[in-house]
Amino acid sequence: MSTEVVKKEEYPKVQPFTDIMHKDNSYYIVMDMPGVPKENLNISVDNDVLTVEAKTDFPTFEGKDLLRSEFGNVKYVRQFTLTDAVDKEKISASLKNGILTLTLPKAEKLQPKKIEIQAE
């Protein structure tokens, strides 16, 4: 039997805390992603499924004595199913202060349209 310890390369998967909001003509998905640099973030839309994946890059304590550890590097993964109510071509994302904000504009055809009434 091998006594060699297999080092796990993958970080544990965690679902980030997420808010979904509706304001004006867009939906917003806001996610807590502390410790994620822009280059570690991956967002994709495939078959109505929006996938967000990100790896954290927390400062390491190499050569120091760890006194307390309440969090570590993780891989944030979360998927959302989109409906036709969202314009998939116009989804935009911004990462600031460890918060990822996805803006999902409502589809044109679902936005309220005023119909002019012709008076005779």
Partner: peptide
């Protein structure tokens, strides 16, 4: 918190 209509709220 944001000034918007929340559909889901998990963030403290």
């Amino acid at each position: 918190s944001e000034d918007a209509e929340y559909i889901r709220q998990e963030r403290p």
